[in-house]
Amino acid sequence: MSNHENHGSIKAYITGFMFSIVLTVIPLVLVLNHLLAKTALEVSILLAAVLQFVIQLFFFMHIKDGEGPRYNVMALILGIVFVVTIAAGTIWIMTFNSQVQ
């Protein structure tokens, strides 16, 4: 039971943590202070979300580590399918909102 893999360094965790905090605060500030027009705001929030996703994968999910890339790639594809379904599906279904409001 001694094949412990690399679980990352404290420095990497702190960097990741800082990044994810910043990426959470940016959309919050943008929304609360009404800094951008609607479309620009939506695009920036989505952009921050995508970056957040990447940060999580690299700093916390150890996408680069592990015994072989096969499981990682499969899990990643599965995750992307889930996320795209949730986000794109919701946006598509809820577009009716613009017609009724």
Partner: peptide, 15 residues
């Protein structure tokens, strides 16, 4: 099964 959820609210009028 992951792509069927809207059938619970067809009557919402999503088009």
């Amino acid at each position: 099964s992951y792509y069927t959820w809207a059938h619970h609210f067809f009557t919402m009028g999503a088009g």
